[in-house]
């Protein structure tokens, strides 16, 4: 992912709202897609994305450039996505207790349905590194810094995730072709 102009980041750190807005416009798409894959629902991704930028604005004075800006922003977004998953789970339980209450406007398609469903079925620990590496091309080292787990663990989680995805995609395509 492209890094922003350091002057824009500096200006935003210094409280320049217009500069921060440039960062929002530049990165909102990537942040939304990350959240979308982590939370699995478009409107929850909207919420997580907004929270992420509000928190980023709050924490920006503390950003010292030790990580890439995109990595720093992603680690915030990932935490917001986790919070949103917790809240969405809770809301769903309330709505379920009153009878099903699903949003009427179906989510849009950002991935082929099969791949997306298989991805969202993965445990979060495996889904996070897969999304970051395969959908955003983030390096293992960055993902390791971002998730605060050793690189070796990232390596094995990515493998385990791909292995599970391969199994679920293979079984779906078999069902689809009527062979299994």
């Amino acid at each position: 992912m492209e890094e922003p102009d350091p002057q824009t980041v500096m200006a935003a750190r210094g409280g320049d709202v217009r500069a921060f807005e440039q960062l929002v416009r530049r990165y909102q798409g990537d942040v939304w897609r990350l959240c979308r894959h982590l939370v699995g629902d478009a409107s929850a991704a909207d919420d997580a994305t907004q929270d992420a930028f509000v928190r980023a604005y709050r924490f920006l004075p503390r950003y010292r450039g030790e990580a890439k800006f995109s990595t720093w922003l992603f680690s915030i977004a990932r935490n917001c996505a986790r919070d949103e998953l917790r809240r969405a789970g809770r809301r769903q339980r309330v709505a379920d207790s009153l009878g099903r209450d699903r949003a009427s406007l179906p989510a849009d398609e950002t991935l082929g349905v099969e791949v997306r469903e298989a991805l969202i079925a993965l445990p979060l620990e495996l889904r996070e590194p897969i999304v970051m590496i395969d959908l955003f091309g983030t390096s293992y080292r960055e993902v390791s810094a971002l998730l605060k787990v050793p690189e070796g663990t990232i390596k094995s989680r990515v493998h385990r995730g791909r292995e599970l995805l391969a199994i679920s995609l293979a079984s779906e395509s078999q069902e689809g072709s009527g062979e299994g």
Partner: peptide, 16 residues
């Protein structure tokens, strides 16, 4: 995974 279309994302800049 990598060949999936990027797809549309909403413009949230104003509300942010």
């Amino acid at each position: 995974l990598r060949l999936q279309p990027v797809g549309a994302v909403p413009d949230l800049a104003d509300s942010i």
